[in-house]
């Protein structure tokens, strides 16, 4: 009876507000085609997909592709590289904007502060392709960075992107260059809302400026830091491949090839469609678990969480 009444009410509402329901259609269609379509296609990870046979005719092979990946030589290399690259990104890339915000927060001269901010934002507006092009230029045989490094170490280097030891530093520090100014905005915003009486009270007690940073400023922006940290750790395995494939080459695969770039290369360059789908599925499952676990830990320890 209740269900019937509900369906009558619904029909009445659809009749009255048909326009709103009509507007929902293109959006829902888009989600089903472009987001759910590929999710269904993920089943080819359990098949031996042959484009000529098509989706339904290809044979089921169960976990074969997953086993191939776990037992093959690329499993450890790609997982290790993904973890290491993220470790670098979090250790340096995550802390750099916090440090910059702390420094900028000490500046009372509005003009200087604004100039610094405007200039440090600038690299954020250069497209990724151009940024990577600039990296290629600066780290080439005769590039400025290569020359500076030669000057400092006294050693001779050819193009730096050819050394696997340099891949992570180049990747991380160019990332900092690109994003540090931009990412510090959010911390500065959080800092600007700190109650100034806290600082005044600290001054009365004769507390130094570095101590004020440590005991007042940092704890006040802790929730923001934690949320962004959850994102950083939660997105670990989903680490983007665009910048990787613009910078890596076979010489550096042993440090530069992460799971996502491996999926791209095996899947689209070498057409191992089922196998690379399996690898991709593995990484998105791990990623979801990571996000869930970090979120849980954050909620337990600091009562800040995404959901």
């Amino acid at each position: 009876m209740e269900a019937l009444r509900k369906s009558v009410r619904m029909k009445k509402d659809i009749k009255k507000n048909w326009f709103v329901y009509l507007l929902a259609i293109p959006v829902l269609v888009w989600f089903f085609v472009f987001c759910y379509g590929p999710m269904w296609g993920v089943l080819i990870a359990f098949k031996d997909y042959k484009p000529l046979l098509g989706f339904s005719e290809s044979h089921w092979v169960g976990m074969k592709h997953f086993m191939d990946f776990f037992q093959g030589p690329y499993f450890w290399r790609t997982v290790k590289n993904t973890l290491m690259l993220n470790f670098w990104s979090i250790a340096f890339g995550f802390t750099a904007p916090i440090l910059l915000a702390l420094l900028l927060n000490e500046i009372k001269d509005g003009k200087f502060k604004k100039t610094v901010q405007t200039i440090t934002y600038m690299p954020h507006f250069i497209s990724l392709v151009v940024v990577c092009g600039m990296i290629h230029i600066f780290t080439a045989d005769e590039g400025v960075v290569t020359q500076v490094l030669q000057f400092i170490t006294g050693k001779d280097y050819t193009s730096l992107l050819g050394y696997s030891d340099f891949f992570r530093p180049i990747y991380t520090f160019s990332g900092i260059w690109q994003n540090v100014g931009w990412e510090c905005i959010i911390y500065l915003a959080a800092m600007s809302s700190i109650d100034s009486s806290l600082y005044e009270a600290a001054e009365m007690d004769g507390i130094g400026r570095i101590q004020k940073m440590w005991h007042i400023t940092l704890p006040s922006i802790r929730p923001v830091i934690i949320i962004l940290f959850i994102f950083a750790v939660g997105g670990l395995m989903a680490h983007g491949y665009e910048k990787i494939i613009l910078l890596y080459n076979p010489l550096t695969y042993d440090t530069s090839d992460i799971v996502a770039s491996y999926v791209y290369r095996r899947g689209l360059r070498e057409a191992s469609l089922s196998y690379s789908t399996a690898v991709g599925l593995f990484s998105s499952v791990v990623n979801f678990v990571l996000l869930w676990v970090t979120n849980r830990i954050a909620r337990r320890t600091s009562e800040v969480s995404l959901w």
Binding site: L28, F31, G37, P38, M39, V42, G267, L273, T277, S284
Partner: peptide, 22 residues
């Protein structure tokens, strides 16, 4: 229901290859 349908896509996806084939 629509919110659930949409939120799921923020956490799960098919990945690069199924996307490309589609």
């Amino acid at each position: 229901h629509i919110m659930v349908v949409i939120t799921i896509t923020m956490f799960f996806g098919g990945g690069l290859i199924p996307w490309f084939l589609l």
